[in-house]
Design a binder for these strands. Sequence first.
DNA 1: CCAAAAGTGTTGGGACTACACCCATGA
DNA 2: TCATGGGTGTAGTCCCAACACTTTTGG
Lengths: 230, 230
Amino acid sequence: MYSYKYPRPALTVDCVLFGWDMQTEQLKVLLIERAHDPYKGFWAFPGGFVDMDETADVAAARELEEETGVTNVYMEQLYTFTGVERDPRERVVSVAYFALVKPHKHKVVAASDATRAQWIPLSEIEKLAFDHAIILKTALERLRGKVRYQPLGFELLPEKFTLTQLQSLYEAVLGEQIDKRNFRRKVLKSNILIQLDEYETNVSHRAARLFSFDQTRYEELTAKGYIFEL
Amino acid sequence: MYSYKYPRPALTVDCVLFGWDMQTEQLKVLLIERAHDPYKGFWAFPGGFVDMDETADVAAARELEEETGVTNVYMEQLYTFTGVERDPRERVVSVAYFALVKPHKHKVVAASDATRAQWIPLSEIEKLAFDHAIILKTALERLRGKVRYQPLGFELLPEKFTLTQLQSLYEAVLGEQIDKRNFRRKVLKSNILIQLDEYETNVSHRAARLFSFDQTRYEELTAKGYIFEL
DNA sequence: CCAAAAGTGTTGGGACTACACCCATGA
DNA sequence: TCATGGGTGTAGTCCCAACACTTTTGG
């Protein structure tokens, strides 16, 4: 038992992971079905308590791995939720994290406590536990805000992709149609794509050229104050 | 005494308040001189513990008022600092807040516990307690990022101001020179300024016209998806 | 009349939008 | 040969950066 002069809220982390499903061209979110009350049967973000000897960043990575098997993803702090009644049991403050992953690279494994972890399409999400609907909304706003001035698209796509795939992703995230020619011109001019000598296979129409993201080049440009836009 | 099965970090808030000194054309930050150890004599942001029945937002506003007498300012959450060794006494997690105020409208009063609260020019800040130097750095990045696409300048200036005053403020925050004609054209075209029929007084040169910020108009434009830039 | 800051227009180049047709491939 | 998506260019407009002189005022 640990005793304090004044009461303290518990401290947790929650991880909002976005992934892009290339087959269905949908944004998905990694969720866990809760096995116990409160909110038994509801969906929730992976997360859990912050230990005394770890930062919230470390706790977020650890909980994510424990609950979903997903490791080694870039996460950034999103927002801290401090509502007094967030958790019906007791006061819990939660630091939420935000990440973009390539789902095919991160096989979701059965969670340690036998709850299901699954990629759920954004459009089909319902019954979220606690205040996780608000957390999701906040994460979506961050995603839409960032996508315009940081090349986030490449975090979600496989290493090699076509320009049309990149465009569909942007259209889905931004919720608007983009002109094909203008999109291509803009993204190529930015000089952060490497044109490969490879093409799609197994398509019943002209095969599209593949590209990859030039991380090194992007870092060079960023260091010089360059800001990627749309 | 309050007992828990597992240890818990304490939860605090810290408030980073920026103000603009029109006389000296300097950005200032509201700081408190610590009266006790640890970090006795160092400067720190106003802040304190989050009570069990209040959100962090409420705690930030309350602590700010208690320690500096400043009330009724718009604050937004900045970032949550969770370093294990932030506080040498015990583990303390702090939710930092960020605000812009018009210093002349917020008289700083003697703090309740006899410590000094003062506006310190950014360039003269030293000896910050805890990890407050990192918090300040984070707040400055937020300020510089936001100033480009939100009309923050008006939060810092008095109700009536000249275009030159507005420009100096932007130059100070962004750390770069701006062309006078281009700046004026751009800011006037944005349609969020009201041109007044009033002029500076007591200057020994041509008196500059005064303007005020058109809050209503800005909200109309924002609602329609307009995004202010520079 | 002098010092000091206010105020004002133009031009050239680059970026953005809108828009429609031919090409390559597999079935 | 057909269906499907891949790939390409131009013209008009708007926005931006760069740049220097005249005006007003108080001392």
